[in-house]
């Protein structure tokens, strides 16, 4: 089910962590969040400070730029997701980046981020992602090599049902047809492929 375009969001009192080395970029995002009703937004510029904040405060949602100094934002996200003792292990984490190359999006997905938001960011794009994360939570997956939101996205169109461009069409979702593969089926197929590849 898609979020209604005029649904409301109640984020007052929640704690947001903005991890981005560029203070002007965070000034804009901070302003947008304030407009949405957020009143607890913490800005940090590097990994070390981010870790310190996470040790000292409860954070409800993080937004992380991959170019974060002292280790990189994606490594920081992976370290949170892989740490069984981290209180933030399952909180929503959004990657904010101007680099929308496929390789970057895949890396963000594989480190355990919930979503990628492209910069420059408009208030409507951020609003739609925040409501999507709130209203359409995804299951978490734990494997030997991955911990994070289920990466198998079902394509259900744009968050609001319609894209931002004038030429975007409404997306119609058809009912599921035919049987779908279970995780065990997928695992066994992959295992066979690996055996085949090794042979």
């Amino acid at each position: 089910m898609l979020a209604a375009r005029n649904s409301s969001i109640n984020i007052a009192g929640l704690s947001f962590l903005l991890a981005d080395p560029n203070p002007h970029s965070t000034a804009i995002i901070h302003g947008i969040l304030r407009g949405f009703g957020a009143n607890r937004v913490i800005e940090i510029r590097n990994n070390r400070d981010a870790i310190q904040v996470l040790n000292e405060q409860k954070i409800d949602l993080m937004m992380v730029e991959p170019n974060l100094p002292k280790g990189g934002g994606l490594a920081f996200i992976r370290s949170i997701r892989q740490d069984p003792n981290s209180p933030c292990r399952t909180i929503p984490i959004l990657v904010i980046t101007g680099d929308t190359r496929t390789s970057m999006v895949k890396s963000a997905r594989d480190c355990g981020a919930n979503m990628v938001i492209a910069k420059p960011m408009s208030p409507s794009s951020l609003y739609e992602r925040l409501t999507w994360v709130a209203f359409h939570p995804r299951k978490f997956i734990e494997t030997a090599t991955y911990f994070g939101p289920d990466r198998r996205f079902k394509i259900e169109g744009f968050p609001s049902g319609k894209g931002r461009r004038a030429g975007d069409n409404e997306v119609e979702i058809k009912a599921e047809e035919g049987p779908t593969l279970s995780q065990n089926d997928i695992d066994s197929l992959l295992a066979e492929a690996r055996v085949g590849g090794a042979a």
Binding site: D60, T90, F140, E142
Partner: peptide
């Protein structure tokens, strides 16, 4: 595979 009911949501 498990559901997460986070405070944010």
């Amino acid at each position: 595979e498990f559901d997460v009911d986070h405070e944010y949501g």
